[in-house]
Design a protein around this nucleic acid. Structure first.
Length: 99
DNA sequence: CGGCTGGCGTCGT
DNA sequence: TACGACGCCAGCC
């Protein structure tokens, strides 16, 4: 199974209403510092809707980027009950899903 | 808080 | 096949 497949699978483990970081996700698939690699994969996401890549945020608490626009990402997140303030997630540390 | 550098896989020459 | 550029970062200064 290639890397992206593993990433997608791991990401599917994140329940609705919770989030994870690129770094955590990267480590979850065996990468120590592959956050950026993960970002690349997400960007090349072949399954836009099936893969909840909007539940992945930066370790700083910001929502990070999104292939279809960060505003869309923020929208989806708030739609799942996650509040966003100026691109940052409120109490995101309490919503992070630990693998 | 803004800017610079490090590190990793994928994609396009 | 090999090399350099790039991306939805992270961390230090």
């Amino acid at each position: 199974m290639n890397l992206e497949q593993k990433i997608y699978k791991k990401l599917l483990e994140v329940p609705k209403g919770q989030i994870t970081t690129y770094g955590e996700l990267a480590k979850a698939v065996g990468l120590k510092n592959g956050q950026r690699a993960v970002g690349k994969i997400m960007n090349k996401n072949p399954h836009p809707v099936i893969i909840p890549c909007h539940r992945v945020v930066m370790s700083t608490g910001k929502i990070g980027g999104y292939a279809y626009g960060k505003h869309v990402k923020a929208k989806m997140l708030s739609d799942e009950g996650i509040e966003i303030k100026d691109g940052k997630i409120l109490d995101w540390e309490d919503r992070v899903y630990r693998f």
